[in-house]
């Protein structure tokens, strides 16, 4: 006897086959634009795909990985990528938490503020990067104007012209843009905490800091992990902010792995090096994800 569902589909196909049929166009698209390029890129990492090379197309095994991992520039760029990831992550989660605690209160205008805080996050990264490039402009920039007006500096100075300063300036621009995301996540988590817990803690004589540490924090840990996982992965892969603001300069001070891959692939025509760097980035992000996931699972068990 036919089930109702089967009758509704009308044909001789089983429900599974019909579902598969309907999903197949989407599956084909994923195959064509994700899986196939991914596989081809991997093959490229095992070949000499340097367009200018005389041995183009030859199979080289793991030589690309060996040459990339054996070079000084890779480790320098990896170091800068980690610096960018870690420093902006710490600042973002810290600031995000503070903003969330503030916005969790009830005072006039709090809902307007909650809406307003989203704004930087809503701006596309290349737009906000262009915006910050102007803010940092060494002659006409708003940052110079502000600091001069406050009397902190006497004359306009360069913000993106020195390697170490430039990287910190990019971190600042990224923190400005992405703190709202962390804040919104934390705010959502804070709203779910049962108010009765605070009252109980207060009756037990816990001060504001103890209440935060023993009541609020445990509830925020899962969200904190989500924010850290998501943001560190995205930061590790960040490209647009570097492309728009510094293009890896000055003196390679902001040369991160993604930009390194771009430069080697699209400027130097060395597709094998670019593909290898891309795969190494993917491996690192994957490793990060697995370790975070393990952490998350442990958290679940502890709960």
């Amino acid at each position: 006897m036919r089930t109702k569902a089967e009758r509704r589909t009308g044909g001789d196909l089983s429900e599974e086959a019909y579902a598969f049929l309907l999903l197949s166009p989407a599956g084909l698209v994923v195959l064509a634009v994700v899986l196939v390029p991914l596989a081809i890129t991997f093959v490229y990492t095992l070949m000499n795909m340097e367009l200018l090379s005389e041995n183009r197309g030859s199979f080289v095994g793991l030589a690309n990985y060996a040459s990339v991992l054996g070079s000084a520039w890779f480790w320098q760029s990896l170091g800068r990528t980690l610096y960018f990831t870690l420093s902006s992550l710490v600042l973002e989660t810290g600031l995000g938490l503070l903003v969330a605690l503030l916005l969790n209160g009830s005072f006039p205008g709090v809902s307007a503020l909650r809406a307003l805080i989203i704004l930087p996050w809503a701006i596309p990264t290349n737009v906000s990067a262009a915006l910050w490039k102007w803010i940092y402009h060494p002659e006409f920039g708003a940052l110079n104007a502000l600091l001069q007006w406050m009397g902190i500096i006497k004359e306009c100075r360069s913000w993106l012209g020195d390697p170490s300063v430039a990287m910190n300036m990019l971190v600042l621009a990224d923190v400005w843009k992405m703190t709202p995301l962390a804040a919104i996540f934390f705010l959502a988590a804070l709203q779910f905490i049962n108010k009765a817990l605070y009252e109980a803690a207060r009756i037990d004589g816990a001060g504001p800091f103890r209440r935060f540490w023993y009541v609020t924090m445990p509830h925020l840990v899962p969200t904190l992990l989500v924010v850290v996982v998501m943001r560190s992965m995205e930061k590790f892969k960040a490209f647009d902010i570097f492309y728009v603001m510094t293009r890896g300069g000055p003196a390679n001070g902001t040369m991160v792995l993604t930009y390194e891959a771009y430069l080697r692939g699209f400027t130097n025509l060395d597709y094998s090096a670019a593909a290898t760097i891309a795969y190494l980035i993917a491996f690192i992000v994957l490793a990060l994800t697995f370790s975070y996931l393990r952490l998350l699972r442990q958290e679940d068990i502890n709960d």
């Binding site: 060494p138 002659e139 360069s158």
Partner: peptide
Amino acid sequence: PKSTEYIEDNVRD
């Protein structure tokens, strides 16, 4: 010294 962060358009400006 700001030259180290300038391209042609900044020089023109």
